[in-house]
């Protein structure tokens, strides 16, 4: 199971949007709002091939961060967190593999996705997707969302041991 602090796991479970930041080949950090999913161990995000530049960046540099900061997107939960980690792109079959991996988690947060899926014929490329599986390595947590204070920092057990 995961090592993230329980309040951060709660944020991941409710957040409709988080900010995924990846690093471009020129070293510039670029941020993409995406819906974060959590399987109890990894943060799972996903991207259509239509918007796949972030996937190319991750393949070149897997270091990423996910920021959870908007209480409106987190059912009023004021806590904030940033999770740094290493991402892996899962795209053996962009047509349907993502459905097996994340569809259940996705529809729990965005039930309307089933309606979109039924209309797949209308937007076929949107549903050619890759999963971004992020293994958390370091967590910065601001209880109550007060980022004027220093965050509580925790690290993955293996990383801490190393």
């Amino acid at each position: 199971m995961g090592w993230l602090p329980a309040p951060v796991e709660e944020l991941l479970n409710v957040a409709l949007v988080g900010e995924l930041t990846v690093v471009r080949p020129d070293g510039r950090a670029i941020t993409h709002p995406l819906i974060p999913l959590y399987d109890g161990e990894r943060i799972l995000m996903h991207s259509s091939t239509l918007f796949s530049r972030k996937l190319e960046h991750i393949k070149a540099n897997p270091h990423v961060a996910v920021s959870l900061s908007d209480d409106v997107a987190m059912k009023g939960n004021l806590d904030r967190a940033t999770i740094q980690g290493t991402a892996r792109i899962i795209e053996d079959d962009p047509h349907e593999q993502w459905e097996r991996l994340i569809l259940d988690l996705w529809r729990r947060k965005e039930p309307a996705i089933d309606q979109f899926l039924k209309a797949r014929v209308a937007l076929p490329l949107f549903f050619e997707r890759a999963v971004i599986a992020i293994t958390p390595e370091r967590c910065l947590y601001w209880p109550g969302g007060n980022t004027a204070r220093e965050p509580q920092i925790s690290s993955a057990p293996t990383k801490a041991a190393a």
Partner: peptide
Amino acid sequence: PFLVVTWVDDAGYPVSEAT
């Protein structure tokens, strides 16, 4: 209502905080 500031830290990971 707020902004997220991001940079790449010395370890090469992006890091973000709201402000």
